[in-house]
Structure formats: structure tokens, C-alpha cells
Computed example of a mutant assay.
Amino acid sequence: MNVSPPKSALNVSCEECPLLCSDSFRAFSQEELEFVSAFKRGELASSTGSSILLEGSNSPHLYTVLSGWGFRYKMLEDGRRQILNYIFPGDFVGLQNALHTEMQHSVEALSDMVFCVFERSRIYELYVKQPELGFDITWLAAREEQMLDEHLLSIGRRTAIERAAYLLAFLSDRAAAVGLFEKNSRIEPLTQQHVADTLGLSLVHTNKTLRKLCDNDTIAWHDSGFEIRDAEKLKEIAGWPGVSGLARPFL
């Protein structure tokens, strides 16, 4: 199932949401669907490379990724960047600012993206009127923490080749679960610089590490991204079991 948006991507009703057609997400009750439809304020289209949220800024909105993908990151004053995690269709974006006065990270689009937009000021209404949806948001926040734990483990304890294998297997699993790419064996667009900024390695070290994965025929890289040739071997190298296939909630 491909969750690319229909051509009328800026006028997508909740009843026709392409994510509802995916087995990766739990179904909504009619009452929940009606509430979310009233809760939603529209869609936002972002082009490749654009910033959706900026560290230090305040945003009146929360977002659900409808299509495309991007990444969350933080910057040091000297321009060095650490990519924290990647966002895929169904992910909830901007919740952190609901608890703080300003964003503590930035979000950038890796591809053209479409977001469902919600008013941040109404988030408490959701918890009061639809506690099950409130629990879903809590679940999504806990899942994000779980992923960040795994990423931190990777940066802190995995070797360079194990880090690279983990990252590409992780992205491949997450993309395949939501049918993000026409060819699930390809991860694109993604550059070696993105990989380096995620793994905490220099670009030279990243290049050498990726060459090792190419040499054992687990991946191939192209100008636009990476081809996954043996996802199971990548997981074996990383010592990582993969993403759970259980249906998850989204808003």
C-alpha cells in the first residue's frame, strides 16, 4: 500500500485519509473520526528542504505526517548538526512545544511532504473529550522515546559499521511499513551527509563505513539514496530485531 496523497492533497477529508487504508495503523471508531475531522484545521504542503519547525521558535500548530518524510535535528553554534530521528507518514510532530514555551529542535522535509494541521491550543480538549485519543498521543510520545533510546545506544555503543547497518535497516523497516517508496528496497532521498549527521561520524568515516556494507552486498548507494539488498543481514550486523509490525495509532 502506497500512502502517497491524492492529487487534491490540500483537501483531504479524514474519511478519505490514505493512512486509514494501511494495516500499519489502528482503525478509528466513527465517533473518533468525527472528532478528529472537527479537530483538524486543514493541510500543509512543504517542499523538499523546507523547515516545518525551527528550534527556538513557537508554533501554534501540531502536525500529523500524511505523506513524505523528513527529520528532526539540533544544531550547535558552529553549524554542526545532529539528526535525532526521522519522521514518516502517521508520525505526530510538534508535541514537544505543547509542554515548553519554544521548540527544542528543528524539523526539515527530506522530500515533498503533506501534513494534517491541528491547533495546539485545543490539545487539552482532545484529552478531555476523547481520552482514548489522548492515550494514543501518549503512546506515540512513549514510542518516540523508545526509538531515541535505541538511537542513543547505537551512537554510544555500536561500532561504526553496526551504526550504519542499524540506521539503514531502521529506515527501511519504517518506510516499508507505510509504503513510503514505490520500491521498498530504496531509501531516497538520503545523502551520506544525512547518514553522517545521524551517526555522529565524519563524512570520510561514514563513506568508508558504507563502502564496507556495499562490499558485503547488503546495500548499494546511488546519488539519490540507498538500495537495501539484504535487510536481514543489516539487522544481524547491527544486532537489532527490527520494527514491530503491530498496528499503531495516529491522529
Results as ranks from 00 to 15, higher is better:
residue 75 M to R: 12
residue 141 A to R: 05
residue 225 G to Y: 06
residue 142 A to P: 02
residue 216 N to H: 10
residue 91 D to P: 04
residue 177 A to K: 00
residue 72 R to F: 10
residue 36 V to M: 04
residue 189 P to G: 08
residue 167 L to P: 03
residue 35 F to H: 06
residue 202 S to A: 10
residue 67 S to P: 00
residue 23 D to E: 13
residue 178 V to L: 00
residue 90 G to T: 02
residue 27 A to C: 13
residue 45 A to L: 11
residue 213 L to R: 02
residue 86 Y to K: 03
residue 192 Q to P: 05
residue 142 A to L: 09
residue 53 L to T: 03
residue 55 E to K: 11
residue 182 E to A: 09
residue 85 N to V: 07
residue 249 P to L: 05
residue 112 D to T: 06
residue 172 S to Y: 01
residue 141 A to H: 07
residue 92 F to T: 00
residue 59 S to E: 10
residue 178 V to T: 03
residue 196 A to I: 06
residue 125 E to R: 14
residue 64 T to I: 09
residue 206 T to Y: 05
residue 72 R to Q: 11
residue 74 K to A: 14
residue 215 D to L: 13
residue 210 L to P: 01
residue 229 R to T: 06
residue 96 Q to P: 04
residue 129 K to H: 14
residue 94 G to S: 09
residue 178 V to G: 00
residue 195 V to D: 00
residue 192 Q to M: 10
residue 207 N to K: 09
residue 78 D to P: 05
residue 10 L to W: 08
residue 188 E to G: 04
residue 116 C to Q: 08
residue 46 S to P: 01
residue 27 A to M: 13
residue 128 V to L: 14
residue 24 S to L: 01
residue 104 Q to T: 14
residue 244 S to M: 06
residue 228 I to L: 04
residue 2 N to Y: 04
residue 27 A to E: 15
residue 135 F to S: 12
residue 19 L to S: 00
residue 45 A to M: 12
residue 76 L to Q: 15
residue 226 F to C: 04
residue 158 R to F: 06
residue 88 F to K: 01
residue 116 C to I: 07
residue 68 G to I: 01
residue 177 A to W: 00
residue 19 L to G: 00
residue 174 R to S: 08
residue 71 F to W: 05
residue 181 F to R: 02
residue 208 K to P: 02
residue 230 D to F: 05
residue 212 K to Y: 10
residue 226 F to P: 01
residue 7 K to N: 10
residue 235 K to L: 05
residue 218 T to F: 04
residue 214 C to S: 15
